[in-house]
Amino acid sequence: MERVRIPPFESFYEDHKDPVFAHLRRLLGQGAEDAFQETFLRALRAYPELRNGRHLRAWVFTIATRIAIDETRRRRPTGELPEVAVEDGLPPHAELGPMTDELPPKERAAVVLRYGFDLPYDEIAAALGSSEDAARQAASSGVRRLRERSKQS
């Protein structure tokens, strides 16, 4: 695949700061501020290692989502978890973090956003920088992969 040039961090940050902040606000409500700063500091640390500028939006949203998951888990230790309505008997959101560790990043983000945070597909698509169909597909193939894995173990 053709490589896309990595932009200067300033333009990357300006392009993504508002959508990332909105995303974190949806996931975390108040307290999104710390997660925002952590997201972009982490992105800044990893920036020199990036080799392709093609999926920057999905990349930074994945970082943000991962940080939000950790933050949610930290806030509500297991046992005090509120019951979250889940389809297919999937576990509530705090459990999804570690369970999905091995999934490809896009599928992982889609699964966690859909079943963990209950986001509609249009918002997941916005977060991943892909179409709604692609978001739906990523979530369903992620779920399939998880099922296959749980059969094996």
Partner: peptide
């Protein structure tokens, strides 16, 4: 869309420099 509050933006820009992460 919820925009980043100016204070948070300022804070991040300062933290990025403080942590020695900028070229």
């Amino acid at each position: 869309m919820t925009n980043v509050p100016l204070e948070l933006d300022t804070h991040f820009r300062a933290a990025a420099a403080e942590e020695g992460l900028l070229d």
